[in-house]
């Protein structure tokens, strides 16, 4: 089992991190960077995904309508990988790695592949389920314009209406689906 801080300590420290981010730079957000990564890969194989365009607000434009949105902001980040948002998500992987290396108790080999609740559920093919889950989550996050970090935490911290709408939509679907999908798993706090 991994270390898990109690809820109060967890809440206070998490709040502090979100505040540090908005005080020093801007609110935390993650899901946009999946689009930026895709755009970088696409850009390797195509000449005209991103081009310089002095008439756009960012100085860059794209022939894809989504990447060209907001004055070519995404197009600019695709062309310049060393930017705040993109490095931020890679640093998050490092943060998870450091936290796990600094704790004595390790996760089991079984848990690395699939959590206990999934193994008990009677479902197989955890990797297929997570792959499909990932596709739904990022498609939904891009349609919504943000994810748990950007909409729910950063958004609701600023009391954004959009953050509340996103949280409503997410939990309205996620709670019944989780209860149904994992109905054969054991109940109660593990």
């Amino acid at each position: 089992m991994e270390i898990r801080w109690n809820w109060l300590k967890s809440g206070v420290v998490l709040a502090t991190v979100f505040l540090i981010a908005v005080i020093l730079v801007k609110p935390i957000g993650v899901s946009t960077q999946f689009v930026i990564f895709d755009g970088m890969v696409w850009n390797l194989f195509s000449e005209d995904v991103v081009s310089e365009d002095p008439s756009s607000k960012s100085g860059y434009a794209s022939n894809n309508e989504y990447l060209n949105k907001s004055g070519g902001k995404y197009a600019k980040n695709i062309e310049n990988p060393i930017n705040y948002g993109f490095l931020f998500v890679f640093a998050m992987i490092g943060g998870g790695l450091i936290s796990s290396k600094l704790q004595k108790s390790k996760i089991s080999v079984d848990d690395k592949e699939s959590p206990k609740v999934f193994r008990e559920s009677g479902h197989s093919k955890r990797y297929v389920v997570t792959f499909i889950g990932g596709a739904l989550v990022l498609f939904g996050a891009r349609l919504a314009g943000g994810c748990t970090s950007g909409h729910m935490m950063s958004g609701m911290m600023q009391t954004s209406l959009s953050g509340y709408l996103f949280a409503f939509g997410t939990f309205a679907a996620a709670i019944p689906v989780a209860i149904f999908f994992y109905r054969n798993s054991s109940k109660g706090v593990a």
Partner: peptide, 18 residues
Amino acid sequence: FGGLIFGIGFAIAGYCPG
């Protein structure tokens, strides 16, 4: 609507983008 689609994937996988 995005939240609803997000919620389905979130529920089956137990992960979000961060």
